[in-house]
Amino acid sequence: MARSAMAQETICALRREISRIEGSLPERLASPQAGDSVVLRRGISAVREGCSAFLGTGVPKLDCALAGGVPRAALTEIHSLQTRDAGAATGFTLGLLALLRRADGRSRKQFLICWIGLADVFREAGFPYAPGLEKLFGFAAGGLLFVSTAHIADALWVAEEAARQKDFGAVVLEVRGNPARLDLTATRRLHRRAQELGRPVFLIREAAVAEPTAAPLRFTVSAEPAAPRRSLAGLLQDSIGHPAFTVVIGKSRAARPGRFILEWNPHEQSFREIRPAHSGALVPASGNRPHPPAAMGAVVALRPAGKAPAPGGQPPGKERPAHRRPRRAG
């Protein structure tokens, strides 16, 4: 008993120390679901009056797992595993931006977004297309500002400068892969800027693997089959309905993993959690056959960028076939 109390005290002391470093007071909150566990919710230094520190996603379970929602004054990472999932990652980010715009009470034209991307992202994953953004997420073309740079250092500089601007409602930085320059220091600088002004910075990372960054929250987004369209007569078979994503919480302060399937409703401009239409593959994979079909997309050009492909199939230098070894004399 005494030991556990001591451990509790040590944990409290450590938390206090962490909050001192971060410049905010720890606040204890009982988790809405589990009564005994304690969720630590830290105050955010520079949130404007009248705004909550968190942006609610509109999905109660997701908000609960995030201990309130997506933090406003912070850097948030949104990952996609492959470049071809760029649509899902971008769509989820844009959904969050649309919610943010509504929560801020800004009109379509007042809400300015600075979207910074490297030229190779825009080339590989496509350039954000204003009519689509307007149709699905309600962003006016006049409220978008794009910056396309050739080097990651320039993109980071622009992002830091933009995160300092009061004019932008949010800053989006889009990077492909895991560039070395986008390290703990660089993300910490972005995070600090976001904290200072109380405006979020979204870091979309296409085809990237998770690595330590200063962002308190990381989502991994992938595509999800959309639900069929509804009509008065019922579901329309073989129709493609509202955008849907699978969102996995990779890292958060609440430290609760979660996997959510969300649907974006463009008419109501809101997220909704849905159940997957079919669990499991459409066609059952044939088992115990000599040559099973390879998993799709395993050997393609769209591997996560930044990692050099291992020279597959090449035996190491020492392991030569027997007939190529120097023949032993005698």
Binding site: G91, F122, G126, F127, Y129, G132, E134, K135
Partner: peptide
Amino acid sequence: GTSGVPERPIRLFL
């Protein structure tokens, strides 16, 4: 408004 506009993608290849 945008109701009559046909569906458009959010990313377009250059």
